[in-house]
């Protein structure tokens, strides 16, 4: 690697402790030994089921909580050592999040204008010689929305897809360089998913924006990203180029995930006697994956797997 990575995670650990009223405290290993790096303008998918730690990983990168050990670096600088408010603000500007629920992530009592004006003013992102209005129009045009028609609308007047565009616009408004997109299309209709993915793809290719894309859908991960990390139980179980992971997954859990993606051309086995075979198989794979503490080892060019 000649250029330093835009984002680096180095043996990141995070454990949550649940204190129950009786008995011993329970430890939840949300992130275990997470290491990867991401080049500027590239996209990495974190794929896994609920509770695999994929969202926790995204939120750790956004600096939403302190990690227990390890290091997260943005452009080579550890985010944990940013102390001055200027440094913190700079990190916040560079790394932005887009959340899953477009209905909950915008304030229902404010217009689109309010949602975009505040970040523009706070981060002083209005270029000299331009008015605030110009900057607002430009930001909305970037996400393919009609500025004049959208600016003074309230969130409830917009569709889910339009709201998700506003969330992307809000990230762009402050000049985000890394966007952490946490299941940005999973609450949208299938019919508009691709258009949001295409927008992210365009931002990546034309603007050089780096994406950390969190999803449980391998098909969309393959569509948008160069690399995919499959996560289970707080660990990365397989890492590699997305098309290779989709074409030839190596880890049993990756295979399970892939085989679960609906494929219109294959009918499922409807026999009642076999109905639970898949569940049993899935449970076995989950248990075996959870039990294994084998380290990530290289299995070829750019590919790694936990043995």
């Amino acid at each position: 690697m000649s250029t330093p990575a835009f984002l680096t995670l180095d043996q990141v650990h995070k454990t949550y402790t649940l204190k129950t009223m009786f008995g011993a405290a329970k430890h939840i290993h949300a992130l275990r030994d997470i290491s990867f790096s991401l080049q500027k303008g590239e996209a990495l998918a974190l794929v896994g089921e609920s509770g695999s730690g994929k969202s926790t990983c995204g939120r750790a990168v956004a600096g939403m909580f302190q990690i227990d050990s390890g290091e997260i670096r943005v452009e080579g600088k550890p985010i944990a050592t940013a102390h001055s408010s200027q440094e913190k603000r700079e990190n916040a500007r560079k790394v932005q999040m887009v959340f899953q629920d477009p209905f909950a992530s915008l304030n229902p009592t404010h217009t689109v204008r309010h949602h975009l004006e505040r970040p523009l003013k706070l981060h002083k992102r209005v270029p000299e010689g331009q008015t605030l209005e110009d900057a607002l129009f430009r930001t909305l045009a970037d996400v393919e929305l009609d500025p004049a028609a959208t600016l003074d609308k309230f969130p409830h007047e917009l569709s889910g897809g339009q709201r998700q565009r506003i969330n992307l616009a809000r990230a762009l408004a402050v000049g985000a360089e890394l966007i952490i997109a946490d299941e940005p299309t999973s609450m949208l209709d299938v019919s508009i998913r691709r258009s949001i993915l295409n927008l992210m793809k365009r931002l990546k290719e034309e603007r050089g924006i780096t994406f950390l894309y969190i999803t449980h859908d391998l098909a969309t991960a393959h569509y948008l990203t160069e690399n995919t990390a499959v996560m289970f139980g707080g660990r990365i179980v397989e890492f590699g180029p997305s098309d290779q992971i989709v074409r030839a997954p190596q880890h049993d859990y990756s295979k399970l995930l892939l085989s679960s993606v609906p494929n219109a051309r294959t009918k499922i086995d409807a026999d009642f006697e076999h109905a639970r075979d898949f569940s049993k198989f899935a449970d076995q794979v989950r248990q075996a994956t959870a039990a294994s503490a084998a380290p990530l080892a290289s299995i070829g060019e750019g590919r790694m797997m936990r043995g």
């Binding site: 006697e273 109905a275 639970r276 898949f278």
Partner: peptide
């Protein structure tokens, strides 16, 4: 989740085959 979704779909298909009821299955997928 996709894996659980598949498990439930298998379940529904198996029950349908066993009991032979009709289903109106609504989804956008």
């Amino acid at each position: 989740d996709v894996v659980v979704q598949r498990e439930i779909l298998q379940e529904i298909a198996g029950l349908q085959q066993k009991f032979g009821f009709s289903i109106l299955f609504i989804t956008h997928d």
